[in-house]
Design a protein around this nucleic acid. Sequence first.
DNA 1: TTAACAATTCATGAGTAATTGAAGGGTGGA
DNA 2: TCCACCCTTCAATTACTCATGAATTGTTAA
Lengths: 116, 116
Amino acid sequence: MEQSRVLAALSALANETRLELVRRLIQQGPEGMAAGDIARDLDVSASRLSFHLSQLEQAGLITGRKASRNVFYSVDAVGIGRVIGYLLNDCCRSHPEVCACCTPRHAASPPEQDGE
Amino acid sequence: MEQSRVLAALSALANETRLELVRRLIQQGPEGMAAGDIARDLDVSASRLSFHLSQLEQAGLITGRKASRNVFYSVDAVGIGRVIGYLLNDCCRSHPEVCACCTPRHAASPPEQDGE
DNA sequence: TTAACAATTCATGAGTAATTGAAGGGTGGA
DNA sequence: TCCACCCTTCAATTACTCATGAATTGTTAA
């Protein structure tokens, strides 16, 4: 993944409203959530939400799908994974202490993993 | 990890100079690199570098250690891991497609992996 | 003590991002 | 057709981030 795309994605995530937005959409699963419902849920104005949604969409972190009057937004899990993968593997070169975060909620860190 | 700390870290990473800086420091290992050498390496002015270094340090992504006239900066691998861990586990709730990034450098994406 | 060096801090200005409210483009129901 | 609804776009304002160079602090060597 190119660095410029990673930077765009990180900029998109580096915002309170948008990070919260991604969290909500993750919970919502693949069917996603209508923009209006998100706006009510996060208590932001429609135009402001629309701005943030387009930032996330341009960064490849979410996708929108029209359904009659509504637009349902859902996370692009592969896109998010690509960004995290860049940080983990390209940027941090699979550093064992960094990669300790990959064991989701189990043991802290297996110390003698000598995989490279 | 609190969301405000994650946001600070993401903001710190969402900058070309600083992302490149983290990459260099990761390569440099635990002994780190003197600020002046980093500045020469990245071709940025001393004051500009100092600004970026402090952003990263405040975000808990790097640490500085004085040695006579120099300050050696090195990555805080645990700190970086915490940020990625938040994205992976808290924000994305260990979503399998997101977590596919955790297998460092092997198959691109096994489509029907239903292991968890 | 003086000079040279390493790094940071400060003030200024330029550029970019975020918020707001109003206006516009589709869509569905009466 | 008319109105209500959902969402996006636009223009204007505000707020923030980044870059620059000069001044400053602290350290080493002459």
